[in-house]
């Protein structure tokens, strides 16, 4: 649905060049929620703004729903007619909501429809539908200044959906909101994704956002995508930085000298098997549990456990092999026998 190829963006200011995007390839499938995560300055904001050409990439291409937007005319600050029409099929929500203070909630939602040129009656009806969808039917006549942050973002979402877009871009939509409001906005995005088959590309600096709504994710650092894929695949990938960030076990201590620390990750219904006690019984070893957590990621139950096995790595090849046979993913973190 959204594909970027070798996307580059270089800013020039006062003779200096700053590379914000350094060859980004992104592929967002139709109907999925795709999250781009990274620290500030990683280039994720530039990336999402390049998708609807609010910023022109220096090179590379952006294709949305089969249309190459980079080929359409226009400058950074002024879009040509074809690009303007393409943008009408891409909704966008913003961190600071960007609602017009001079218009009521309903008039804000009607704005994209005015731009398309729909008549008053149609606009009214559509705005009422959308406000109902986001749960703000009773606020139609209020002004944005009378709403809370979460309500404002709901209006922002209703407005973004007015033109019946296939794609919704979310630029840190929950970053200005408190945790509880964040959850309700994310739940709304998830519902819209399921009900309307909407493809959502969102950027965030919060792993929690990725965890709670995304099907796929990309990790950005220094203008590059360092890791990307479906969350379930990432969690099953050994040494995945994203998986580790998504599922931090915290610093439970790295175990004792002469022991091997491993992390066991299980997905779906594998935890139904009592693998720890099986392991202990089969190999007659004492297992020390350092930490464990179970979470729901991308709608699936995922658990991770950090355990300490006696002896160095070579002593534990067989038990680790046993765990892998059970369909578990095992990462060896430290074999303290040799190092310590």
């Amino acid at each position: 649905m959204i594909t970027t190829k070798d996307l580059r963006k270089v800013y020039r200011s006062g003779g200096r060049e700053v590379t914000a995007l350094d060859g980004v390839d992104l592929h967002v499938r139709e109907g999925e929620v795709y999250g781009v995560v990274g620290t500030s300055g990683a280039g994720k904001s530039t990336l999402i703004r390049c998708v609807n050409m609010l910023e022109r990439p220096s090179s590379g291409t952006v294709t949305v729903d089969g249309l190459d937007l980079t080929a359409l005319s226009g400058s950074e600050h002024r879009a040509g007619r074809e690009l303007r029409e393409a943008r009408r099929r891409i909704g966008m929500v913003f961190q600071h909501f960007n609602l017009l203070s001079s218009r009521t909630v309903q008039e804000n939602v009607e704005l994209p429809l005015e731009i398309i040129g729909q008549d008053r009656t149609t606009r009214r009806r559509r705005a009422a539908e959308l406000l109902d969808l986001v749960g703000l039917a009773d606020k139609a006549r209020s002004y944005p200044s009378q709403l809370s942050g979460g309500q404002k973002q709901r209006v922002g979402i209703a407005r973004a959906l007015a033109g019946d877009p296939k794609v919704l871009l979310s630029d840190e939509a929950t970053s200005a909101l408190d945790p509880e409001t964040t959850r309700s906005i994310l739940a709304l995005l998830r519902d819209l994704n399921r009900q309307l088959g909407l493809t959502v590309l969102l950027i965030t600096h919060e792993m929690d956002v990725i965890k709670s709504v995304c099907d796929s994710a990309a990790l950005m650092r220094g203008g590059r995508v360092v890791e990307a894929g479906a969350l379930t695949d990432l969690l099953a990938t050994e040494g995945s930085q994203l998986a580790r960030d998504l599922f931090p076990l915290g610093d439970f201590g790295s175990g004792h000298p002469g022991h091997t620390v491993v992390e066991v990750t299980f997905q779906g219904d594998t935890p139904a098997q009592p693998f720890i006690s099986q392991l202990a019984r089969t190999y007659q070893i004492d297992i020390n549990i350092l930490g464990a957590a179970v979470e729901t990621i991308a709608g699936r139950m995922v658990g991770r456990m950090r355990v300490e096995l006696p002896g160095g790595h070579q002593d534990n090849v067989v038990p680790i092999g046993f765990l892998r046979e059970q369909g578990l993913q095992v990462d060896v973190l430290a074999a303290n026998g040799a190092a310590a």
Partner: peptide, 27 residues
């Protein structure tokens, strides 16, 4: 006027004239 508002209207496919009429002047 918050440039974010102009950007929002541009993201909806609004032209320069639209941003003047719907954003800059009313706001």
């Amino acid at each position: 006027v918050d440039p974010g508002l102009v950007e929002a209207v541009q993201s909806m496919g609004g032209s320069t004239l639209t941003t003047v009429r719907k954003v800059l002047l009313p706001e």
